[in-house]
C-alpha cells in the first residue's frame, strides 16, 4: 500500500478520505446529544420514580427505605382500587367510542366528494387545542346554565340535567371530552390506512359480488390493520394518561366519580405530599401503558409482516 502511494505521489488527504459512509464514531456523536436529554430527563424520571416508590418521604424531605410498604398501602387503599376500576372503565369506554368515531369520520372523509382538504384540515383542529382549553370548553358546553347542550334541550322543550353535577353524567362528559381531543389524530391515521388500499381491490371485490358491508369487514378492516394498531395505541395512551382534561373539567368530582389513577396520583403526591405512594401510582400507570402498547405493537407488527409477505 505504502509503495503504491509513494508511486502515485499523491497520498489521499484526510479530506479526500472515504468514511462519510463508513462506521467510525461519527454516528454515535450525532446520536448522543439528543439521547442525553431523553435519558437524562425521562430515563432518570422513570428510574427515580421506581426509587421513590420504595421510600418514605417525611416532612423535611428526608427519605427512608421502606421496601414494598408503599405498594402494600396503595393496593389496600379502597380509594386507589376505585380509581383503578374507574380508569379501566374510562379507557374501555374511550377506546370503544373513540375508535368507532374515528372510523366513521375516516370513512366520511375518504368518501366526501367536495372540500376534501377543508374537512380534513378542520377535523384535526381539536388536536391542537390544549387539554386544559378543551376541558374548559367542554365544561362550558355542558354547564347547567349557559351550556350549549342545555340551550339546545331547552329550545326543544326538554329536561335540562345538571351534566357535571351528576356522577354518571359527569363521567360520560369526561369520556366525551377525552374523545374530542384524541379522535382527530386517530381519524387521520385511519384515513391514511384507507388511502393505501388499492382501489382495484374494491373493484375486484365488487365483481366478486361483495356488498359494501362485506367489503368493509372482509377487505378494508384487515388491510388497514397496522393503522388500526397505531390508532389503538394512541387512543389507549391518551386515555390512560388523561390528566389535564379531567383536572380542568371535573377535578375528579363530583363525589370522586371521575377520579382516575392519574388524578389520584396528583392528589397523593402534590396535595397530600405523599411522594412514595404517588410514585407507586406512577409505576402502575407506566406498567399498564407499556403492557398495552407492547400488546398492540405485537398485534400490528405481526399484521404488518403478513401483508409484506403477501406482496
Amino acid at each position: 500500500m505504502s509503495t503504491t502511494a509513494v508511486r502515485t505521489g499523491t497520498p489521499p488527504t484526510a479530506r479526500e478520505r472515504l468514511g462519510d459512509f463508513g462506521w467510525g464514531t461519527v454516528p454515535y456523536l450525532m446520536v448522543i446529544p439528543g439521547l442525553a436529554f431523553v435519558l437524562g430527563v425521562l430515563g432518570y424520571a422513570v428510574a427515580g420514580g421506581f426509587w421513590l416508590s420504595l421510600h418514605e418521604t417525611d416532612m423535611f424531605l428526608m427519605k427512608t427505605y421502606v421496601g414494598l410498604q408503599n405498594y402494600i398501602a396503595v393496593f389496600n387503599d379502597p380509594r386507589f382500587q376505585a380509581s383503578l376500576v374507574r380508569t379501566i372503565v374510562f379507557v374501555i369506554a374511550s377506546i370503544a367510542l373513540g375508535i368507532a368515531m374515528s372510523m366513521m369520520f375516516a370513512l366520511t372523509l375518504y368518501h366526501v366528494g367536495f372540500g376534501k382538504r377543508f374537512f380534513r384540515g378542520m377535523s384535526l383542529v381539536p388536536y391542537f387545542v390544549s387539554g386544559i382549553a378543551a376541558a374548559v370548553m367542554f365544561r362550558f358546553v355542558f354547564t347547567t346554565s349557559g351550556g350549549f347542550v342545555n340551550y339546545v334541550l331547552q329550545q326543544l322543550g326538554l329536561h335540562t340535567p345538571s351534566w357535571l353535577g351528576d356522577p354518571y353524567l359527569a363521567f360520560m362528559v369526561s369520556v366525551l371530552a377525552n374523545c374530542w381531543f384524541m379522535v382527530p389524530f386517530a381519524t387521520l391515521i385511519l384515513l391514511g390506512g384507507l388511502q393505501t388500499v388499492d382501489k382495484e381491490i374494491y373493484d375486484a371485490a365488487t365483481i366478486d359480488g361483495a356488498g359494501p358491508v362485506q367489503t368493509f369487514f372482509k377487505i378494508t378492516l384487515p388491510m388497514i390493520k397496522p393503522m388500526m394498531g397505531v390508532s389503538l395505541i394512541w387512543v389507549s395512551y391518551i386515555s390512560f394518561s388523561t390528566f389535564d382534561i379531567i383536572l380542568a373539567l371535573t377535578a375528579g368530582g363530583p363525589q370522586r366519580a371521575t377520579e382516575v389513577v392519574s388524578m389520584y396520583m396528583y392528589q397523593l403526591a402534590f396535595l397530600q405530599l405523599d411522594f412514595g405512594q404517588g410514585a407507586v401510582l406512577m409505576v402502575v400507570l407506566l406498567l399498564f401503558n407499556t403492557v398495552l402498547s407492547l400488546f398492540y405493537i405485537y398485534f400490528f407488527v405481526l399484521a404488518d409482516k403478513r401483508t409484506e409477505k403477501g406482496n
Binding site: T4, A5, T8, T10, P12, R15, E16, R17, L18, D20
Partner: peptide, 21 residues
C-alpha cells in the same frame, strides 16, 4: 470501500480517495 486489491484511475491509486476527488 475496497476490501482488498487496488483501483487506479489515471495512474493514481484511489482506494481511499473520496468519491468527489
Amino acid at each position: 470501500s475496497v476490501t482488498d486489491g487496488d483501483i487506479k484511475i489515471a495512474g493514481r491509486l484511489v482506494n481511499r480517495v473520496h468519491a468527489s476527488n
